[in-house]
Every structure is written in C-alpha cells, then in structure tokens.
C-alpha cells in the first residue's frame, strides 16, 4: 500500500524552476532517503508534499497521517517538553488528556528523555530538542514521517544520538522520508535512496545501487564526503 504518492510535481520560485517533473511514491513502512547537493530542491519537495508550499503543477496524495521533523526543531519554547509532545494530541485530535499524557511519557521514555518532561526546550541540548521534536511528531500516530535534515543544525556528537533515535523507529513500521547529508546513515537505514540534483530525481534505487552509481553528478556529489 502506498502512503504517499507525488505525481509530476513542478514548482518555480520567481520563474526559476526548483522542482521539475518529480514523481515519487512511498510504501507503508518504507524508509526513503533523499540526498543531493544543497539547492537541489529537497526541502521544497518536502514542503510541497506537506502542503507548506503549493505545487505549480502535479499532485500529492496521502493515505493516513503524516508528521514532520524540521532542521530547526521548531519546538514551542513557552511549553514544557511534555506539553510540546501532547498538546496537539489533546487540543487538535481531542484525545482524552490522561491517555495522551501517558502516551507522551512513554514516547519520552523511548527517546531517552523521561526525566525531562517538565523541562523547557531552552534547557535542553540541540540533540535533545530534536529528539523531543521527533516525539512530538510520533505522538500524532503518523503513517509517514518527514525529516528535513534533522541533524544539520547539530554538533557531530549530538548528531549521533538523534540518528540513533531515528534508526530505532524502524521497528515501528512507520514510513519515513529523510532528507539527509549523513551518507553512512542513509546507506545503512534506507530501503530506497533518491539522489536529487537541479530539481530532478537523478538516481533512485536500493542504497547499494545508488551509492555505486556511475552517474557523474552522483560521483561528484559523493566525493565531497
């Protein structure tokens, strides 16, 4: 079953094409990584998929719910960690409060922040904040999670703790679309990898095939790492 299908997506900013006829679908439980040079349209693709930007042409269809984890976390600084994770569940999804809090605490335990539920985001490290953002997205019970460079704002040692949490989500069988510059991680965690350049999907396949591709752009891109 497909949880996401994007057909013939096109998007320009001020006449400059950023997405050129991008089509892609994600199966339930599948982990898809998107790699590619900066400016190639990866974020725009995610923003169009989630509805934060409007496509000029093409279509996006979802089966079920999705959540998003941003590069800059975008936690709500005036709320405690627990409220960040549970407020939308209670206020938007109208789930019973006690149940939501219980699930929220379980999620915080899962990401290793059970003792921080009453802390405010500013009291946490960047890595901890990003883990809270992941818990917040998970609390929505998503069928699909988008990650836009979840570790790009973090120091190397904090990067690893966030990658460990993302890796541990595999067992939840939630589909994930991960834009990342962590090549080793993408290769190891993904079922499928997409290489984007100039607003187009240039290569697509299993990590083995994509990372072994002879495509010039791909080789040039990988040589930076």
């Amino acid at each position: 079953m497909k949880v996401l299908e994007i057909r013939n997506a096109e998007k320009s900013f001020d006449g400059t094409p950023v997405l050129r006829d991008v089509s892609l679908s994600v199966e339930a439980g599948e982990i898809l990584s998107i790699i590619g040079p900066s400016g190639s349209g990866k974020s725009t693709l995610l923003r169009c998929a989630t509805g934060l930007e409007k496509l000029d042409k093409g279509s996006v269809s979802f089966q079920g719910r999705f959540g998003m984890v941003f590069q800059q976390f975008n936690l709500f600084p005036h709320w405690t960690v627990l409220r960040n994770v549970t407020d939308a569940v209670i206020r938007v999804q109208k789930r019973p409060r006690e149940e939501a809090l219980q699930e929220g605490r379980a999620l915080l335990a899962r990401i290793g922040l059970a003792d921080k539920e009453q802390a405010y985001p500013c009291q946490l490290s960047g890595g901890q904040q990003q883990r809270v953002a992941i818990a917040r997205a998970l609390a929505q019970n998503p069928d699909l999670l988008f990650f836009d460079e979840p570790t790009s704002a973090l120091d190397p040692e904090l990067t690893q703790e966030v990658l460990r949490v993302i890796r541990s989500l595999k067992e939840l069988r939630i589909a994930m679309v991960i834009v990342t510059h962590e090549m080793a991680f993408a290769r190891e965690v993904s079922d499928r990898v997409i290489f984007m350049a100039d607003g187009r999907i240039q290569e697509e396949g299993t990590p083995e095939t994509v990372f072994a591709s002879e495509n010039q752009r791909m080789r040039a891109f990988l040589s930076q790492f």
Binding site: T50, G51, L52, F66, G67, M68, F70, Q72, N74, L75, F76, D87, A88, R91, V92, Q93, R136, Q140
Partner: peptide, 22 residues
C-alpha cells in the same frame, strides 16, 4: 520565526489556535 507557524500548521492547529496558544 516562520517555523513556529509551520510546525503548528502541520500539527493541525487552526489559525486562531496557533495565534492564541502559540
């Protein structure tokens, strides 16, 4: 920051909820 609105929107908050609570 724009990110506050975007996070709120993707969590399903309405415009007025986003404004008054966040």
């Amino acid at each position: 920051p724009k990110g506050q609105y975007e996070a709120a929107r993707l969590l399903g908050y309405s415009r007025s909820q986003t404004f008054f609570y966040i």
